[in-house]
Design a protein around this nucleic acid. Structure first.
Length: 825
RNA sequence: GCGGGCGUGGCGAAAUUGGUAAACGCAGCGGACUUAAAAUCCGCCGGCCGUAUGGCCUUGCCGGUUCAAGUCCGGCCGUCCGCACCA
């Protein structure tokens, strides 16, 4: 930080300390470092911190397998990985480093939790969760694979548990509209978040029972629909098997209970849902149609209605919803089309096999007849509202965030359960609630739940014996606000925090497009609203860049084993495994993964080629948002270039100096243009283009004359600029080169070179000449030559003359400095 | 099913206001140096015809707009990713 310079908060997603850095880390942090170093050279105050996302299951798994404490395992991994990252020469402020498992960090997190609790943004409720009976913990949806626990492989059970929730739905609308302002985010991520939030406008309304209402639903059945225009096509009501009315009916009727059990057995996996048959149970109840006097609709329980969305009940309109149509056909319910596609005749229109969801005009619909869909929606809503049966509503797909985990290695939830006072927050003075170190992992389940000494605590209100909450927070909470903690610095200073926030540029993988990035956007808003950060817009990350993966070829032996590429060799034109001689086939190029044995260890690469080569290669070939394939040949090419680059600097005569004059103007132009091109490419995250420009620039410097004052001066200027331009990419080599040509201080601290605008334009340009759109010749003209002069020159060109011979010139288009096109026939 | 991305040489890719398609790199080929090899250096490298100057074709496919289309518009095909019984 120095003076009034503008600030740039650069952040890459912090790492999970799994044990060793992988090439994905190298790419992620190299990308971020290029921008951070560039910003520093441009005079910005730059914050570029690093830390560790250190809580989570792998530490507990290691504890179970190797009898090490999760904390020891984690901090040992952090030490190793920090050393690895430091070898890469990243311009990181390590003084701000922390791990989320540091009590100092999670203590602050507990304080935030309590603030949000006070504000009603955290609450407790009973909900259905995925329960792994072997690991004895709740699993997130994404940890359930084909209905089984991702780690234990045991079939996951649905359990009703009391859990802590973050009220992310409070911000549903703001999280959605906020996306529009995130102009430096990829559209893909914005779209994914918008879909995840899933806003839909519609009507929430009641259907009244025909006859006596059951006790469980005295006011009728509440449904949500986005198609109130199709009410005249309604032919049934369907309840979720988990709807309160279904539950009530099941208690009285074993057949209903049997049907519910059948539905519960159905898998929740993708293909199970895709192939699942529509199934229903007729309750015998009937409700009144709101618009048709005397008409009634049967009430069914149906397996395809979700309790988690809307009201858990729908009205079925088979004419215009495919699921409803499948259901109606199966149980022989009425099918009445009410939207007529344009060009169809209402008297002869026949239902096809597919429900019609396109545009059209209402028919078979009394007062809605003849209206377009949108108008009919409004008319139907108005009428329902006038009848007092409902009103227009907005529904979101987004659910509140269930954050309780029955694990040890996480942030303890700072709550105490007292038989007298209920759930009581831990007083702020008692924070942090630290994890007890003396735990054992010899039994499944949460060690905190059986740690009596830790659990037992007097109630902060009444002082009677009480017990601590033993659940810990989902690790996504830890990463939802760490960037705010970084900004506050070592002393946790609010002024500093508010100075740096928001993050100007965030860099990470797309795999976090929804979960982490949505939770972070929620947390920054919630923290703002309880006064924990000054962030008017609420958005934590102004710019987001999602980098691609690193891929590598795979090899598979005939017995199915994956084989390390290094262990494959060619014998008599066939691929074999070196040790066994077994035949091997080349597999697809895939994301590096341990299971496919196609990883490359950054340690090996750094040891063999150096950190700069590793950085250069991962930035060279592909645009950073695309996947890049790691190849041995590519790394060797990068290493060759490093040698060549050093050679240009090393070849410069020591202590040489010269005066600029026009003799070396072209070389100077190349240098100044290159500076501008590299700068533009960095700003646009087109590092591969920056690399290409550096290649061309180096080639030009190598070819340049070595004798003469003007050339010596131009070369020195070029080398000085070049060293500063490639510093963000290869900082170590850049320091050597800078020192070699007598640069002052560290090149890492040097200012970005200024390109002279006068040297960015040529006096002469070569214009291509087209005849009827085909390039036929080119002419060299002065940059400022007037169009009519260019036209005359073009028409006088020999090759052009040959192509227009015998034709009439109809038109000549001269685009100054670009092209000339002659239209002739 | 819904939403989004991508399709350019043998490969990774450039061409970012519609204006010379294939910059730069990798692989390959030829040459120099060397007893030889490696390294290094020089040259060639989209396809077809031609000794050559050069000509024709070429950005997934079909059509359109334009003096001019990889780029814009319409319709297909392929591929990857995300979400998904969301009413």
């Amino acid at each position: 930080e120095a003076g009034d310079a503008p600030k740039a908060y650069m952040l890459e997603m912090f790492a999970y300390p799994s044990g060793r850095a992988h090439m994905g880390h190298v790419r992620n942090y190299s990308i971020g470092d290029v921008v951070a170093r560039y910003k520093r050279a441009k005079g910005f105050n730059v914050l570029h911190p690093m830390g560790w996302d250190a809580f989570g299951m792998p530490a507990e798994n290691a504890a179970m397998q190797n009898k090490v404490h999760p904390g020891d395992w984690t901090y040992k991994n952090i030490d190793f990985m920090r050393a690895q990252l430091q070898k890469l020469g990243l311009s990181i402020d390590w003084s701000r480093e922390f791990a989320t498992c540091d009590p100092a960090y999670y203590g602050l997190q507990q304080a935030i939790f309590l603030k949000l609790f006070e504000r009603g943004l955290v609450y407790r409720k009973s909900a259905k969760v995925n329960w792994d009976p072997v690991d004895q913990t709740v699993l997130a949806n994404e940890q359930v694979i084909d209905g089984k626990g991702w780690r234990s492989g045991a079939p996951v059970e649905q359990r009703e548990l009391t859990q802590w929730f973050f009220k992310i739905t409070h911000y549903a609308e703001d999280l959605l509209t906020g996306l529009d302002g995130l102009e430096r985010w990829p559209d893909k991520v914005r779209t994914m978040q918008a879909n995840w939030i899933g806003r839909s406008e519609g009507l929430q309304m009641r259907f009244l029972f025909n006859g006596e209402a059951p006790a469980a639903a005295p006011d009728g059945i509440e449904v949500f629909t986005t198609r109130p225009d199709t009410l005249f096509g309604a032919s049934f009501i369907a309840l979720s098997p988990d709807h309160p009315l279904s539950l009530a009916l099941a208690e009285a009727n074993p057949d209903v209970e049997a049907f519910r059990a059948e539905c519960a057995q159905m898998g929740t996996s993708e293909e199970a849902i895709e192939t699942a048959e529509k199934k229903g149970f007729d309750t015998g109840l009937r409700v009144q149609h709101p618009f048709i006097e005397g008409a009634t609709l049967p009430v069914w329980i149906a397996n395809f209605v979700l309790m988690g969305y809307g009201t858990g009940a729908i009205f079925g309109c088979p004419g215009h919803d495919q699921r409803d149509l499948d259901f109606a056909r199966k149980y022989e319910l009425d099918v009445t089309p009410v939207v007529l596609p344009s060009g169809e005749d209402p008297t002869s229109f026949a239902m096809r096999n597919e429900a019609y969801t396109g545009p059209g005009t209402l028919f078979n619909s009394d007062f809605l007849d003849g209206l377009a869909i949108e108008d009919a929606k409004r008319a139907a809503i108005d009428k329902i509202a006038a009848m007092g049966l409902g009103e227009s509503t907005v529904n979101y797909r987004l659910r509140d965030w269930g954050a309780s985990r029955q694990r040890y290695w996480g942030c303890p939830i700072p709550m105490i359960h007292c038989d007298t006072c209920g759930v009581v927050p831990v007083p702020e003075a008692d924070l942090p609630v630290e994890l007890p170190p003396d735990v054992s992992f010899d039994q499944p389940g949460n060690p905190l739940a059986r740690h009596e000494a830790w659990k037992s605590v007097p109630c902060p209100i009444c002082g009677k014996p009480a017990t601590r909450e033993t659940d810990t927070l989902d690790t996504f909470v830890d990463s939802a606000w760490y960037y705010i903690r970084f900004a506050a610095g070592v002393s946790n200073d609010p002024a500093e925090r508010d100075y740096w926030m928001p993050v100007d540029q965030y860099v990470g993988g797309v795999e976090h497009a929804v979960l982490h990035l949505l939770y972070a956007r929620f947390f920054s808003r919630a923290m703002r609203d309880v006064g924990l950060v000054d962030l008017p817009g609420g958005e934590p990350f102004e710019g987001l860049f999602t980098q691609g993966m690193i891929t590598h070829e795979t090899y598979q032996a005939d017995d199915g084993r994956w084989v390390f590429p290094d262990d494959v060799e060619e014998r008599d034109g066939a691929l074999v495994e070196r040790e066994s001689g077994m035949a091997v086939t080349r597999g697809p190029i895939e994301k590096m993964s341990k299971s496919k044995r196609n990883t490359v260890d950054p340690e090996d690469i750094i040891a063999r080629f150096g950190a700069d080569v590793a950085r250069w290669f991962v930035l060279s070939d592909s645009p950073p948002d695309r996947d890049v394939e790691w190849t041995q040949a590519g790394a060797e090419g990068a290493a060759r270039f490093v040698q060549r680059l050093w050679g240009v600097f090393d070849g410069f005569p020591e202590g040489a100096a010269g005066e600029h004059n026009d003799a070396a103007l072209e070389l100077r132009r190349t240098s100044h243009k290159s500076v501008a091109a590299i700068e533009k490419a960095i700003l646009e995250f087109r590092f591969n283009s920056a690399v290409a420009t550096i290649h061309e620039w180096v080639a030009a410097l190598r070819k340049a004359e070595t004798e003469g004052d003007a050339y010596i001066a131009a070369r020195h200027e070029g080398l000085s600029m070049l060293a500063r331009c490639f510093t963000p990419f290869m900082p170590h080599l850049a320091e050597e080169c800078w020192a070699r040509i007598g640069g002052e201080g560290l090149v890492s601290a040097a200012a970005w070179p200024e390109a002279d605008p006068a040297l960015l334009v040529d006096d002469q340009v070569t214009l291509p000449i087209q005849v009827n759109g085909k390039r036929r010749s080119e002419i060299a003209v002065a940059k400022t030559a007037p169009a009519d002069e260019v036209e005359t020159l073009a028409l006088a060109d020999d090759a052009v003359a040959a192509h227009i011979a015998g034709k009439t010139v109809k038109k000549v288009i001269v685009v100054p400095g670009r092209i000339v096109n002659i239209v002739a026939s």
